[in-house]
Design a binder for these strands. Structure first.
Lengths: 336, 336
DNA sequence: TATGGTAGTGGAAACGTTTGCACAGGAGGT
DNA sequence: ACCTCCTGTGCAAACGTTTCCACTACCATA
């Protein structure tokens, strides 16, 4: 195991360690001759700086922390996450940052993990993916004045960085598409009420109905939770009521895809008997049977811009603190 | 930003920094009284050790590196990955390890990232997910005697850690299931030939056919690549030949699911007109329409045991170097 | 020729830990 | 009463960097 240090390089090049350090950090006043000598020595010894020692004194780690929140077991299984991560890594690696991952099974663990990373001086900034409203971690980070960015929700504080979609508008647009297709009786499968995103999508839906003067039958609102627990019963209730919806907006593509399958089991065809739309446009949505009409929320971009926000802040660059990633209606064959 | 160090704790507790350090690391010969004093002081100051300083001298980082390989754009989008990661994090976090993520767009970048982490003393061990056969990184790590584990392939070297499935057997089992269902004409959609996993699954398939004395019509072998490029044409060729297969084994669930949809578009029902089976049992397989018959390869376990292998090695524990995660046939409704 | 300025380099302290070694004090054996 | 041994603690060096400050040449200017 090679343990070549800056001193070895210095010795080989016939200069002092300070000079080597300066060459590494591209200090302006190093003579070209010295620079070359040192570079050659570094190369010859296959020198790589000890990052621990470096961060200990320079006080930055070129690392961004990411704690996967406890409420996200589904988020995690959900293909959503790996696409977000891909976007994050793309930007981070390009700027020479790495991602440090930890996970938590509950809020205490989440707080612990963050404390360990932040107070342990292990990372320069942190991404908060916890989609719920709870602010104890945010408060703590603000108190320490530690750089962080929120993914998937925003906060009124003007200087808190965040990256999000306009979920209200997205849901509004999606509902209006259904209305424009002639649907008058539209149901919805809602997500966990404690999540901001669920609330936003529900409210955009309601607003669109209201604006079009359409009714919202309470029987047409079911929760994803209910659906998961007892799919058959829930769907039967919905579809065998005297007045059944002709279209259903589903809070998430994954759930939409599974709903389509469950409808098929009971004998309802999509889109012949009922139209289904989802949210997110995950990779699978295009490949489902039938392909799903949905809102593309720019999953990759969400990840990409989250890290962009954070790294820009770390670099002291000026930039708006709230970023809204645009969404886009993708019409496929699950609607008519 | 709190900058409380071991010295602050020592001062408050009225002991020396060494003693504090010993309390932290549970040194046996510290008197209970001192131990309590120090613990109280730590708590009162909300002390968290500076991990950089700690690793600098102790020479371990409690961090495991993970470089996402360049050939894995699909692997990455593939829900497979997030489930593997979930397994990895579960074990790692439980043992107080974190994961350091980097990605690479080509082999040079991959090597660079590994060098940076390994030679930079940033990690204690590394997971290699690159599923192809190329050994330059493995050679380098062996040369340095740096701990690593292979995920998704094994190597003849006796002391190289690896976690894998028995893909030959898995494919053999899956094919035999189809044969037992009465299928005599079975086709296959193969993966990239340079991947070990593709090769193994193809060879298990061939072996089962041979053993049953069944023919393998060359027209019934198509590559996933071809399918992706020109699905319609490829499928038409397959299905409109005089002699068409009654079942198709597909190298990967994602591709199987998309194949089902494409067959539906041309007018072939699954499983009425043709049976389809996949590999992996990703989360979505259960929710597809129809639900997919597949081989569960224990994705979560693959991740979990990979990290287990590595951490055990780091802890100096004795254990077998090659782990094979068992697979399991999951019969659903895409076959008859 | 003396003076000042600048470009290039080295010395040494500092970052916050861990740990080998030394040492004080008390217990136990003769 | 003396020696030995053990328990618990402190001192100081070391880990591999960065960076402030000082210093040496050398050149240009007066």
């Amino acid at each position: 195991m090679s343990a070549v240090t800056i001193k070895d390089v210095a010795q080989l090049a016939g200069v002092s360690p300070s000079t080597v350090s300066r060459v590494i950090s591209n200090h302006p006043k190093i003579s070209p001759a010295t620079r070359k000598k040192v570079r050659d020595a570094m190369h010859q010894l296959d020198y790589h700086p000890n990052i621990m020692a470096k961060s200990l004194v320079s006080k930055n780690t070129n690392t961004i922390g990411l704690v996967l929140p406890y409420s996200s077991d589904n988020l995690f299984i959900n293909p959503f996450f790996s696409e977000v991560l891909r976007g994050m890594l793309a930007y981070a690696n390009n700027k020479n940052y790495d991602l440090l991952l930890s996970s938590a099974r509950n809020q205490r663990e989440e707080l612990e993990a963050i404390n360990r990373m932040v107070l342990g001086k292990r990372i320069d900034g942190v991404v908060l993916m916890s989609p719920s409203r709870d602010d104890v971690i945010v408060k703590k980070l603000m108190e320490y004045d530690f750089p962080f960015v929120l993914l998937g929700r925003s906060l009124e504080y003007p200087d808190v960085l965040s990256v999000n979609n306009d979920n209200i508008k997205a849901s509004f647009d999606l509902t209006n598409y259904l209305i424009a297709q002639g649907h008058q009786k539209i149901g919805i499968v809602t997500g966990k009420p404690e999540l901001v995103v669920s609330e936003d999508r529900l409210s955009g839906f309601q607003r669109a109905l209201r604006q079009a003067g359409l009714p919202l039958n309470p029987d047409w609102i079911v929760s994803a939770e209910m659906l998961e627990k007892n799919a058959y019963h829930t769907i039967s209730m919905l579809m065998n009521a005297g007045d059944r919806p002709t279209a259903i907006l589903v809070i998430d593509d994954v759930i939409a895809i599974s709903l389509i399958r469950e409808l098929a089991e009971i004998g309802f065809g999509v889109p012949e008997d009922i139209s289904i739309v989802g949210f997110n446009n995950i990779y699978m949505s295009e490949m489902s049977n039938p392909p799903l009409t949905t809102i593309d929320v720019g999953i990759y971009q969400l990840g990409y811009q989250t890290i962009q926000q954070l790294i820009r802040k770390l670099a002291g660059e000026d930039h708006p603190s709230k970023v809204t990633v645009p969404h886009r209606l993708v019409v496929r064959e699950s609607t008519k």
